[in-house]
């Protein structure tokens, strides 16, 4: 089945990147690099798992009943909320970490620390 294969591929990619993000959370040495792994990979992975659900919903809307279409539309709105809020939250955590005195480990340059921001 063509559609089923597409859904399996989407779900597989999503699970792979979500796992990579969680694994990077354990493996990286400091809070900024952990944010790199956690934000990028889990956002990308969640986009793909949700795309799997959206394709599933639209396909069964066509075949079975309209309630699957409602499922797909709501999944799309949830995905939109996730994609807009996730990088903003990461930015807030990074800024709070730097202001509360957690500096990057093994950094070759830190312009913000030597910079002219007084506040």
């Amino acid at each position: 089945m063509m559609i089923d294969t597409i859904i399996y591929i989407f779900l597989g990619i999503g699970v792979f990147f979500n796992g990579l993000g969680s694994f990077g959370l354990i493996r990286f040495p400091d809070v900024y690099t952990r944010l790199h792994a956690a934000t990028k990979c889990t956002t990308f992975g969640s986009i793909f798992t949700s795309l799997g659900v959206i394709v599933y919903g639209f396909y069964h809307w066509h075949v079975d009943s309209a309630s699957y279409g409602v499922l797909a539309i709501h999944a799309f709105i949830a995905l939109l909320a996730l994609v807009i809020t996730n990088p903003t939250g990461a930015h807030a955590i990074a800024r709070a970490a730097h202001r509360s005195g957690v500096y990057p480990k093994r950094a070759v340059v830190d312009k913000l620390r030597e910079g002219d921001l007084s506040d």
Partner: peptide
């Protein structure tokens, strides 16, 4: 934050 993102993804999956 990571757990929150994963919970949202899992809720969408379980809804389907």
């Amino acid at each position: 934050d990571t757990i929150n993102t994963l919970v949202i993804a899992a809720m969408i999956i379980l809804g389907a």
